[in-house]
């Protein structure tokens, strides 16, 4: 039970995923929502690398993890540019107060 196996990594990734979802759902600030998304992407990456190590799939899982890291970098750059623009337009980054599309 205490000896580290595949399940330990999967549990860590599940906890990290849940914390990321919690951050995305409960935080108002758009930058905090972005941090939650980063946590979720990291947890998915842990799963990829863990199965690559324990599942005898060669290095394919690690290659996919590398692609996820690249996508996360691109996503963070674009999202922060959008957040800066929203702040310039509304002087506000709380996602629950930017609801002009509803009207």
């Amino acid at each position: 039970m205490l000896t580290v196996g595949l399940n330990h990594f999967l549990v860590i990734s599940a906890v990290l995923f849940s914390l990321g979802i919690y951050g995305i759902v409960t935080r108002k600030n758009a930058v905090m929502v972005l941090m939650g998304i980063e946590l979720v992407l990291n947890s998915a990456n842990i799963n990829f690398v863990a199965f690559s190590h324990y599942g005898n799939f060669g290095l394919n899982g690690q290659a996919i993890a590398l692609f996820v890291i690249v996508l996360a970098a691109a996503e963070a750059a674009i999202a922060l540019a959008i957040v800066l623009n929203v702040y310039k337009t509304f002087a506000e980054v709380n996602v629950d107060e930017i609801d002009h599309l509803k009207e």
């Binding site: 580290v4 690398v49 190590h53 890291i69 690249v70 996360a72 963070a76 922060l80 800066l84 980054v93």
Partner: peptide
């Protein structure tokens, strides 16, 4: 620990060196 040394270094360089700095700039500018 999972034997993925290259991914670990890429994680530190991209996330800590890139994304975290971007997020801090986002916090400071907004």
């Amino acid at each position: 620990l999972l034997g993925a040394d290259f991914i670990a270094i890429a994680q530190i360089m991209v996330y800590v060196g890139g994304i975290l700095i971007l997020i801090l700039f986002g916090v400071m500018l907004t």
